[in-house]
């Protein structure tokens, strides 16, 4: 992990810094193409999600030029937003940034809201534990400390029990990821 971004406070500092570093450039780019401040906001916020997922990925190379990376992601997302709106047709291209943005959609998808609501039924602490391990990629040792377990083993057992709980809820309701994405 190239930045110290394991807590909400650390992430806030990072996002504030990146906003000041790159949002003006992204906003200018969007404005020049007829976009609004809201378009720039939505695109930049998705850029930060892409950046974060890249930064926490265990084997990903470090992002050397943050400004250039964010601008590159913003351009891809802008083209994709146009393509999805049938206003402009442009293939995203096949490069590392295109791979990074795969699966990231612009803010405001109702499907995502439904997913989160459903997941929270499994228990907030459980979901936060699973998020910490599988999404934020924190180690089991850090997770044990963060969630107040006496040992790594206790935290590991609890993580699997939480995963089982979520899995069983999915089975009970016969829900599948595609149902939310349809």
């Amino acid at each position: 992990m190239q930045n110290n971004i394991k807590t909400p406070g650390e992430r806030e500092k990072l996002f504030l810094r990146l906003y000041k570093l790159s949002f003006p450039d992204v906003a200018t780019y969007v404005r020049k193409r007829g976009g609004t401040l809201e378009d720039a906001r939505d695109i930049f916020q998705d850029c930060l999600v892409v950046y974060y997922e890249k930064a926490v990925a265990p084997d990903a190379p470090a992002i050397r030029n943050e400004g250039a990376y964010l601008m590159g992601v913003a351009k891809k997302l802008w083209y994709r937003m146009y393509a999805e709106g049938n206003r402009f047709s442009e293939a995203a291209g096949q490069n590392s940034i295109s791979e990074d943005i795969a699966g990231v959609s612009l803010v405001g998808s109702p499907a995502r809201e439904n997913i989160a609501d459903f997941l929270e039924q499994a228990g907030k602490k459980c979901m936060d534990m699973l998020k910490a391990f599988y999404y934020d990629k924190i180690s089991m040792k850090e997770m044990a400390g963060h969630f107040g377990f006496r040992s790594v083993r206790s935290a590991t057992v609890q993580k699997y029990k939480c995963l089982e709980k979520v899995r069983n809820k999915i089975r009970e309701k016969s829900l599948h990821y595609e149902d939310f994405m349809a």
Partner: peptide
């Protein structure tokens, strides 16, 4: 499927932090 849901949950929470 559960791993897909967990990723979506993580992204939703992260976007809330970014919106803040």
């Amino acid at each position: 499927d559960a791993y897909g849901y967990i990723q979506a949950y993580g992204r939703k929470k992260l976007k809330t932090e970014i919106a803040s």
